[in-house]
């Protein structure tokens, strides 16, 4: 029974990770930019959720659309103001730029909130949901399920809408997409906004599960990027699989060897990369054909 319990935990944790990692992989797929600031984005969102909840007692889950929208706007602005200008210098420089953004955000959050853990504890924080012998804390359940649902919504939108098709076209071939009238700047800003919005939403979901402080951004970004590397860059299904692997490893390690959980995950990544350098779902592209 313990195994089932652990599996359920892993699955739910995977849901939140999947949403956040999809944002990273989407930005990479469309723009070739590794967004190392995703961790800072989500900490930003989580701390503001805490602030609003603390000051006004607003139900945190209601803030999901608000924080999603706000982070989306921030992401759009960061793309237009900075990333777009640095992009021609290649992925090495955009990584450094986003690293600078992450540090700046961390510094700002430090000044506002200080270096202390903040936890959002709504009334249902300590409640659990019980089926037979299976006991699942309510925050975990809510976050995991919402994570999957929102990601499903985004995925369906990318698959079915015109805008989503334009994004995917631009991800595969920028010049070709431009020829058929898709503005690469517009689709790139859109992708960046959606990627950042997932951090806005994910930040709210994480805020009811974990205590957060500014420097935890490093833990989060390491996990998210690990997932993306594991799943294969640019692949949303890959990000989901990577998230489930991470969720499961962490749930198992937390139950049996609590201190080593992250190490297990990093170990898994290195092992898989040894055999599949392009990740689980990453395709090797035809680099030579000009």
């Amino acid at each position: 029974m313990e195994i089932v319990q652990v599996l359920a935990f892993g699955l739910l944790l995977g849901g939140v990770y999947a949403l956040l990692a999809s944002g990273v992989t989407l930005i990479f797929g469309v723009l070739d930019v590794v967004n190392v600031a995703q961790g800072a984005f989500l900490v930003f969102s989580a701390l503001f959720t805490w602030q609003i909840w603390d000051a006004f007692g607003v139900e945190p889950l209601l803030l999901i659309p608000v924080m999603g929208f706000l982070m989306g706007v921030l992401g759009w602005g960061i793309y237009r103001g900075m990333v777009m200008r640095v992009a021609p210098q290649g992925p090495g420089m955009t990584v450094l730029l986003m690293f600078g953004v992450a540090l700046t955000l961390e510094g700002i959050l430090n000044l506002i909130f200080g270096n202390k853990f903040k936890s959002v504890t709504p009334p249902y924080f300590t409640e659990s949901f019980t089926i037979g012998q299976l006991v699942i804390p309510l925050p975990q359940l809510i976050s995991g399920v919402l994570g999957f649902l929102i990601l499903g919504g985004i995925y369906a939108y990318l698959r079915l809408s015109w805008a989503g098709r334009a994004l995917r076209a631009s991800a595969q071939n920028k010049d070709g997409a431009a020829l058929v009238g898709i503005s690469s700047v517009k689709s790139a800003s859109f992708a960046f906004a959606i990627g950042a919005a997932t951090a806005g939403v994910g930040g709210v979901l994480l805020s009811i599960m974990y205590p957060i402080y500014p420097a935890t951004q490093y833990d989060w970004i390491a996990r998210l990027l690990g997932i993306v590397v594991l799943g294969g860059f640019g692949s949303i299904p890959g990000a989901v699989i990577g998230s489930l692997i991470l969720g499961m490893t962490e749930a198992f390690a937390n139950t049996y060897l609590p201190q080593w959980s992250s190490l297990f995950f990093y170990g898994t990544i290195l092992l898989i990369l040894l055999f599949r350098p392009h990740g689980l779902m990453g395709a090797k592209t035809r680099e030579d054909v000009a």
């Binding site: 990584v95 990027l225 993306v228 590397v229 990369l273």
Partner: peptide, 10 residues
């Protein structure tokens, strides 16, 4: 190179 950056942090 992309994956390299990330793994170095890990």
């Amino acid at each position: 190179s992309h994956a390299f950056v990330i793994i170095t942090i890990a």
